[in-house]
Design a protein around this nucleic acid. Structure first.
Length: 963
RNA sequence: GCGAGGGUAGCCAAGCUAGGUCAAAGGCGCCAGACUUAAGAUCUGGUUGCGAAGGCAUUCGUGCGUUCGAAUCGCACCCCCCGCACCA
């Protein structure tokens, strides 16, 4: 080994050797397989620190499993379908300043090269080369023969096959769905196109169609069940209303709504025609009919009604809605003759329809009183509304007057009731933003119903049921996320799977559509297994449905598939047996952003297409990476690319840093100071290894082992065990904590205590233990330790816990030594002494005896001061110390009762000769403290000028510092 | 709003699911000492306060509570972050 650690040289050397020897190209064998996949990167930029984290975790698992003896398949591909790459090509074509800046500065693309990337194809070609190069440069153990791009003609055949299959299973259906829509651009608006209202969501209101002769006054509500409690409607006299003709599903109706509502309705899946303007006065003071209960209710004027919300007409439920109650109360003493209303509004009876534990008959009234709301324009009204709504939603149950719905929880009623209302033709769904949305072009957006859209029918209960079953059987790492996965399955609705724009595969049964890019990335892990065969003259034309049916489903015979596809039957059989060998996916490891989308779809499509024995076995999740506390952005910066990290620090240092900086779902923050520290640590490891190698050390396991040798072997076992356990649950931080930092501290203590015989053996274990994390340096050390060509540490046996090497007495002995040293140093520090001599007195026999008795009594669960005294006084020798025993016992008992059982068990089984241990260590202690150290037993101290020996207790020698 | 996760010493962070070994791992930073011509690296010690004997006092978002004993359990409250879709 060279004197200085030069990551670049070492890494290049080993990457070339790995590549040349093709050790990571996996083929089926007798060994147990392990198939690990990481979501392939989307190629609208270079790989960055976030990829670095996710992929490095995957590589560590792959390398770890390989060293445990598994036959590991770790493939990689490139995702390019969808719109962003097309958008990027346009931006580059237009020389959009921010894009040019970000891609040259952060993505590190030379400007002259960047300017040539003006088509999607060129972008894909550029980044797929870069990405593979980057992944090789950080040492990922990927089988590159299996790479592909999602626009490859072969891949498109695979996707067509998959979508035909889903279509045949009726899992792809046609329907409509609401999108945020800009009327000016005549296009859906994506989040980054929004000027205001980025956080707006689409909320589904229910229209309840109150009748006035032949005209409908629709009222929008989020709580359709309150239709049972309607006492009147609200109409704002100061806004404009219109009469319109509305056609939906072949039904024609006349509605009166606000002018704004009319505009919004034209974008829904209804045919809407303007009929005439309607003066507000003509619809106030009229009697309308509740479509469900048949009750006649009056329409009243209210200022709080906004034309832009819902239909512009509001139903009033004063028992449960504070605004309604307030508005009604505000009218009690007003003269409404201008609206032609002369009846006494106090006679309107409130209708209570929800029983909630916190409330009595009229929750709205109670809340208004509690919050002291004065009128409908009082801001506290909002608060009162929220409280009533929340309490009723979570704890409320429908009352008898709701007929067949009585007893149903409010939280469960909405979907059921809405469905019933729609069937009866008295309710409709109406989508609305939770807050106003304005397009970048300045136009207010609307919710538009896109018609004739293809959907993946994820809401299908049978489909979901299978996914639940799959999740139940899977390992979800970390386990806490299992709940999250189940919640998301529950939440998932039908997903539009076709688009007009972008790269991708055409929907095979409706060619004018492109398959949406998340849908084409669900079962591609199986494609890796086939992909390597395509190099041997298999063209896309060969990839017929029969071939996929045979290879992936085992449905058609190999012979028929061969005849149909024209591929030799032997090749097809080989593909099938490869698939049988490698599938299912043992682990899919991914960033947490993919949980509610890709990973969900990954599960849905697997359970829909494959038999149960091919369902995925585990998913692991990791958090994001920020940059000096700032969120990274591919398109806006800041961004740290994988390439920059490796160029500046090297592969192993970057790996060590990203793996150790955060655990699992925690987010990692990439800091300059942190990676600099990692560099020092690698330097130190390198220096340590170089010293051992250059000293010509060899294994010391055959010679006689000293206490400290047995100690380090024992400690090593704990570190090994912790590392293995951590890696099994993909906790790379914990794994490195043990295999790198804690182990390093142990080794320091070993050397400090004069240990040297086992340095080679320690290094031998250590280098294997660290190999998954920092493989290049480990190969380098491994080689210099005498392992010849072809003997890669990447395939050496991973260290596993060896109980036979655990030596608790050695560990206790060292603990005694280090505690004693710490105590001496503390005394010296507190007293500001530099002692000329240190004398240690180990516990007298009677105290040790008392200690043992106490431990055993505690173990039997009957330790107390009285009982211990009694049992000690029965021992003849103990009587000689009759005066000292009570004081000692009094201190001892609480000490021992407060120990946990584990410690009691351990201590009770040990019999340390403290005097011998400390005498053996006295040379070490003397050197550390800088003066002679003498050790006596407190039973018969030869020298004890200050009578310190009386303080000696088991595992805690008395200490005397002499000036 | 709904769902999920989290608040630990200067910073990052372990521990909390099985309460006592927890003044609380480890790393970083900082301070001091050793080594060195010096710096860096490395090693040693310190890093809540007090302390001329290994100790004591007070800490783990806030407030109650359970317990002989709580960072760890219960209740209430405050605060932070993430996801909520047709977009990869």
């Amino acid at each position: 080994m060279q004197q200085d650690y030069k990551p670049g040289e070492i890494e290049k050397k080993w990457q070339e050797r790995w590549s040349k020897s093709r050790i990571f190209e996996a083929e089926p064998s007798e060994d147990e397989k392990f198939f690990i996949t990481i979501p392939y990167p989307y190629l609208n930029g270079n790989l960055h620190a976030g990829h670095t984290r996710t992929f490095t975790i995957g590589d560590v698992v792959a390398r770890y499993r390989r060293m445990l003896g598994f036959n590991v398949l770790f493939p990689m591909g490139f995702h390019v379908t969808g719109t962003p790459i097309v958008g990027l090509a346009e931006l580059i074509q237009n020389r959009e300043p921010q894009t040019m800046e970000v891609y040259s500065r952060f993505h590190g693309i030379p400007l002259d090269v960047l300017e040539t990337l003006d088509t999607p194809e060129k972008i894909v070609d550029y980044f797929k080369v870069e990405s593979e190069f980057n992944m090789r440069s950080i040492g990922y153990s990927i089988d590159w023969r299996r790479k592909f791009t999602t626009t490859d003609p072969h891949y498109k055949k695979f996707i067509e096959w998959q979508f035909n299959l889903l279509y045949d299973k009726s899992l792809i259906v046609k329907g409509s769905h609401p999108v945020k829509w800009c009327p000016h651009d005549n296009n859906p608006v994506e989040d980054h196109d929004i000027l205001h209202g980025e956080s707006a969501t689409i909320v589904d209101f229910t229209f309840l169609k109150f009748k006035y002769d032949d005209v409908v006054l629709p009222c929008a509500t989020l709580r359709p069940e309150t239709i049972f409690g309607v006492t009147n409607l609200w109409v704002n006299p100061d806004i404009e209303h219109v009469k319109i003709k509305v056609e939906k599903d072949g039904r024609e109706e006349f509605w009166i709504v606000s002018k704004e509502a009319y505009r919004k309705l034209t974008f829904t899946d209804r045919k809407v025609d303007f009929v005439e303007n309607v003066p507000s006065s003509s619809i106030i003071g009229i009697k309308v009919k509740n479509p469900l209960t048949g009750a006649e209710v009056i329409t009243l004027p209210a200022s709080f009604v906004k034309g832009g919300n819902g239909s512009g007409i509001v139903m009033s439920v004063p028992a449960h809605a504070p605004y309604d109650y307030l508005a009604l109360r505000d009218l009690y003493d007003r003269d409404l003759s201008e609206f032609g209303i002369d009846e006494d509004l106090r006679r309107i009876e409130f209708i209570s329809l929800i029983k909630a534990p916190e409330f009595g008959e009229y929750p709205a009234v109670e809340a208004v009183e509690k919050f002291g709301v004065t009128d409908q324009d009082d801001p506290r009204a909002e608060e009162a509304t929220k409280v009533v709504y929340r309490r009723e939603f979570h704890g409320g149950v429908l009352k008898e007057n709701t007929g067949k719905y009585a007893g149903i929880a409010v939280s469960k009623i909405k979907d059921v009731l809405t469905q019933d209302l729609i069937e009866q033709g008295i309710g409709e769904v109406f989508y609305e933003f939770s807050e106003p949305v304005v397009c970048r072009c300045g136009t207010p957006c609307v919710v538009n119903m896109v018609r004739g859209q293809w959907f993946l029918n994820y809401s299908n209960p049978e489909w979901k049921e299978k996914v639940y079953r799959c999740i139940e059987k899977m390992d979800i790492i970390p386990e806490e996320l299992r709940l999250e996965f189940n919640n998301k399955v529950d939440w998932l609705k039908d997903k539009a799977c076709a688009r007009r724009k972008g790269l991708g595969t055409n929907l095979p049964f409706d060619k004018k559509w492109l398959i949406e890019s998340l849908g084409d990335s669900t079962i591609y892990m199986s494609y890796y297994i086939m992909a390597k065969f395509f190099a041997d003259g298999i063209t896309p034309e060969h990839l017929t449905p029969a071939l996929f049916d045979h290879v992936l489903l085992g449905k058609v015979t190999a012979e028929d598939a061969a005849k149909d596809s024209g591929v030799p039957v032997e090749t097809i059989k080989q593909m099938r047996s490869d698939f049988e060998y490698w599938y299912p996916v043992d682990l899919r490891s991914s960033g947490k952003d993919l949980i509610p989308n890709h990973l969900l779809f990954f599960l849905f499509h697997h359970v829909a297409i494959f038999e149960e024995d091919k369902w995925p076995l585990a998913i692991a999740i990791n958090g994001f990476v920020s940059l000096e506390g700032k969120k990274m952005s591919k398109s806006k910066g800041p961004l740290l690319t994988l390439k920059d990290a490796v160029d500046n620090y090297g592969a192993d240092i970057s790996r060590l840093y990203i793996l150790s900086s955060a655990e699992q779902t925690q987010d990692a923050d990439w800091k300059n100071s942190g990676i600099e520290a990692a560099r020092k640590q690698m330097d130190r490891l390198y220096g340590f290894a170089a010293d051992i190698v250059s000293s010509g050390a060899s294994s010391g396991m055959k010679g006689e082992l000293k206490l400290i040798d047995r100690w380090i072997l024992s400690r090593l076992q704990h570190r090994i065990q912790e590392t293995n356990d951590a890696l099994d649950s993909i906790q790379t931080r914990h794994a490195l904590q043990n295999s790198f930092f804690l182990l390093y501290n142990d080794v320091k203590w070993y050397q400090r205590r004069g240990g040297s015989a086992l340095l080679y053996d320690i290094m031998d274990t250590w280098v294997r233990l660290l190999s998954p994390f920092t493989p290049h340096l480990c190969e380098e050390i491994w080689e210099t330790m005498g392992h010849g060509e072809g003997d890669f540490v990447s395939f050496a046996a991973y260290p596993v816990y060896d109980e036979g090497l655990v030596d608790m007495s050695a560990e206790f002995a060292e603990e005694l030594v280090s505690n004693t040293l710490a105590d001496i140093e503390e005394i010296a520090r507190v007293t500001k002494m530099s002692p000329k001599k240190v004398i240690l007195y180990t516990s007298p026999a009677w105290k040790t005896e008392a200690y043992k008795v106490a431990l055993s009594m505690q173990r039997d669960g009957n330790l107390n001061v009285g009982a211990l005294m009694k049992s000690l006084m029965a021992v003849p020798d103990m009587k000689r110390y009759g005066k000292e025993v009570p004081a000692f016992v009094k201190k001892l008992v609480p000490d021992i009762t407060s120990m946990n059982t584990e410690k009691i068990e351990m201590l009770a089984d040990f019999d340390l000769n403290e005097e011998a241990i400390l005498k053996e260590a006295s040379g070490f202690l003397a050197a550390e403290i800088g003066c002679p150290v003498e050790v006596y037993s407190a039973d018969a101290p030869q020298y004890d000028p200050e009578k310190k020996s009386r303080f000696a207790v088991p595992l805690r020698p008395a200490i005397y510092l002499e000036k």
